[in-house]
Amino acid sequence: MHKMHNTPAGRVFDVFNHLFLLLIAIGTFIPFVYVIAGSFATEAELARRAFFLIPENITLDAYKYIFSTNTFIRSIGVSIFVTIAGTIVSLALSLTMAYPLSRKGLTGRTLLLNLVIFTMVFNGGMIPTYMIVKSLGLLDSLWALILPVAINPFYLIIIKSFFQNMPDELEEAAKIDGCSEIGIFWRIILPLSKPVIATFTLFYAVFYWNDFFNALLYISDSSKWPVQLLLQQLVMIANVDFGNMDTLLSEPPEESLKMAVIVVATIPILVFYPFLQKHFAKGVLLGSVKG
């Protein structure tokens, strides 16, 4: 990023920094390798070896089971839809709301911000929200997984503060050029906010992808279950309390299946990240003011 002369002390730092981060990366990634390895291992091996990175006997049984019906593929489709539509809705709502709230002269701004902050700590809970969703006729609709959680107040506040940190000169300059308010937001603010938009695209997308609880409450039709709820179904059976006797009716899924489930649920959202990464690195902001 910043090419610059390096002092000897800086070079020593570089070596240690690279090595240190490599160790951290290994430390964070290795357990996931174990999960991947475990998903291909036999039950006997999982019982015998506490931790391994390469299974001795590779079996695809767990994946065969997951992909044995089109249920899984269908639920992935549902999740992709909810993730994409939800992220678009959430970003649209959050960005449009955050921008006015970042404008200090706006009448009523402080009141609105206080009201938003209030909802971060106080909430009505599950049953009242369910009643609203129900009375809007959203039960069994995928929009029930999106609309009730469309704006995360935390993210809203952070986006607002990013907007607020943009230099005021930008807007002043835009006004001189004859930009309307809408023009400023659309042509100046948004293009300059790429790193912020990329960040919150990721945050919202991950949230929608991982959410299963709303589906559990609002979606009865199992053909509309997202993949996380489906996987929950597969995995939770193994975690039932031992007092719960329903393991008798359905064999607990094998350990390898639990791991395979994590792999297939995580990989799609994991590969999404590198595509967003390149937008993080664009230090365009101040440069554009000068131009």
Partner: peptide
């Protein structure tokens, strides 16, 4: 049919 894992909430 409600997923067994969180039946109580439903």
């Amino acid at each position: 049919f409600v997923p067994n894992s969180n039946y109580e909430e439903r």
